[in-house]
Design a protein around this nucleic acid. Structure first.
Lengths: 106, 106
DNA sequence: AGCCTCACTTTCCCAGTAGGCAAGTGCTTT
DNA sequence: AAAGCACTTGCCTACTGGGAAAGTGAGGCT
């Protein structure tokens, strides 16, 4: 299920690439988990999540676990699409270097 | 010969990633070839090449082909190292998602 | 009620970046 | 002498990401 290559500037930015990649691997991931895994500040993460949400790449859910609020996020289908497309674009770029032969999930 | 993963911000920037990747595939590449392949302006390319040179990632050679000057560039060993390291870092990041940038080294 | 904490969010600010455009450089050609 | 080629440099503007700190809303404590 390889997507069409489509370089996505929004996803490419270093922190977002890590973030999206992590989200792609999980279902709902919660704020603290992401913040700690990526070692970023609350504000930086919050802003990036908002960015992803506004792009339609992520869904943000605020739920109450017990009495404390917890924010969780997951990639939307569009987010998954975009990520896969971006990775395909990276493959294509890198392939030019001879470093990699395109895998194409043979 | 896979390098140690080492995310390189300098290489990561979109245009430079394409540029370095292209350089990694060639030996000496000339200015016009790069400019046309990457569809960038003279000034943008010139600046990026200077950036790569200052980082020690590229060598710039000005030669005279006939009577006209030609500028060519090639990745230095350090540049190759950094690029390979960066690709490995991307691979590592993306691997978390279950996708792959590189085919082998599963 | 008033104050504190938790879990983020938002605002303000700033440094860094990339690229367009225009002018400059060095050499050659007419 | 003027124009052209092959870049290079300077100027400027738009945009970005992150730190610091104040703000928000719900729950707890006394």
């Amino acid at each position: 299920m390889s997507s069409e290559p489509r370089f996505d500037e929004l996803i490419h930015a270093p922190t977002r690439l890590s973030l999206v990649s992590l989200l792609a691997a999980t279902d709902w991931a919660d704020f603290r988990f992401l913040r700690d895994s990526l070692e970023m500040s609350d504000s930086a993460l919050s802003k990036q999540l908002t960015t992803l949400e506004e792009a339609g790449y992520a869904e943000i859910r605020k739920a109450f676990i017990g009495k404390r609020s917890r924010t969780s996020v997951k990639l939307s289908p569009r987010g998954h699409e975009a990520f896969a497309g971006h990775v395909a674009a990276l493959q294509q770029i890198v392939a030019r270097s001879g470093l990699a032969v395109l895998p194409d999930q043979v």
